[in-house]
């Protein structure tokens, strides 16, 4: 490995002292190939992050991001025109009304249809449409379920946070086809993200008003052949 390649790896790993880093910065400014080498090392090493267990962020962090983006330029903001355009779109589309959205989240408690998003921008390729549903179960601070449907893999990504356990109940997630029976997506574990492969017949109908329901069940979930427990929250998918 050449000295330059070593330097690139050291820059990618951020191993250098501040002084060395400053010197290297000058070198980077006049050496686009070195920038490429650094990016290559970054890409090579980044998969190490897969070894860490995922940590679900506080729901407030997303809220802060949308608020920051909806604000006019921050003082540390030196981004380009593209970012400005996105910003304008963000303000126009959904996040300008952050307060209204937050109110909708709080109101959506106990079985009321929750957060039904407006139709997202048109997507050229229908096969690429992704859908989302959010089920805040108890307001801002309370339990939260975020579902994202990935059409390529037909996977449903289920994220649950702040779902309390009382030691005698579990929460179970169901998908409901209009005029059909609910199909269990399993018991929810708080603080985790998991993927559930959707059966083809459900995947086909997911964009036609498939409902999402969270129920409270005995530990381990609803008994087979029995009826589901009380509905804790419900929602619908919408295209994003």
């Amino acid at each position: 490995m050449t000295e330059r390649e070593i330097l690139a790896a050291e820059l990618a790993l951020r191993l250098l002292s501040n002084e060395e880093q400053d010197q290297a910065r000058a070198e980077l400014a006049r050496d686009p190939e070195l920038i490429e080498l650094v990016a290559e090392w970054e890409a090579l090493l980044a998969p190490l992050a897969n070894e860490l267990d995922a940590v679900l962020p506080d729901p407030k962090t997303w809220q802060r991001i949308t608020e920051s983006l909806a604000r006019p330029r921050a003082e540390n903001d030196n981004d380009r025109e593209a970012a400005d355009q996105l910003r304008v779109q963000l303000r126009r589309s959904r996040w300008g009304g952050a307060a209204a959205a937050a109110a909708a989240l709080v109101l959506g408690y106990l079985g009321a249809p929750l957060l039904q998003r407006g139709t997202g921008p048109a997507i050229d390729n229908p096969a690429a449409q992704m859908l989302m549903a959010s089920l805040p179960v108890g307001g801002d601070q309370g339990p939260r379920l975020a579902l994202t449907y990935l059409p390529q893999s037909r996977d449903l990504v289920v994220e649950a946070s702040n779902v309390p356990g009382d030691g005698v109940h579990d929460h179970e997630l169901w998908l409901v086809v209009p005029d059909g029976s609910p199909v269990s997506m399993g018991v929810i574990t708080s603080g985790t993200q998991r993927r559930v492969a959707l059966p083809a017949e459900l995947a086909q109908r997911i964009d036609t008003g498939l409902g999402v329901v969270l129920t409270r069940e005995p530990l381990g979930g609803a008994p087979k052949g029995g009826t589901a427990g009380p509905v804790v929250a419900s929602g619908k998918f919408s295209t994003i």
């Binding site: 992050a49 897969n50 860490l52 267990d53 995922a54 940590v55 679900l56 962020p57 962090t61 997303w62 991001i65 983006l69 593209a82 355009q85 996105l86 779109q89 963000l90 589309s93 959904r94 997202g120 921008p121 997507i123 690429a128 992704m130 989302m132 975020a146 994202t148 990935l150 390529q152 893999s153 990504v157 994220e159 993200q193 994003i240």
Partner: peptide
């Protein structure tokens, strides 16, 4: 899916940011 969402974001589709966030935030937070 994340690559697709990033492409949409780069093309100015603001709604894709939430999808990127959902697909990546828990790993980035770790």
């Amino acid at each position: 899916p994340l690559e697709l969402a990033l492409d949409r974001l780069a093309q100015g589709d603001a709604a894709a940011l939430e999808l990127v966030y959902r697909l990546s935030a828990s790993r980035l937070l770790a």
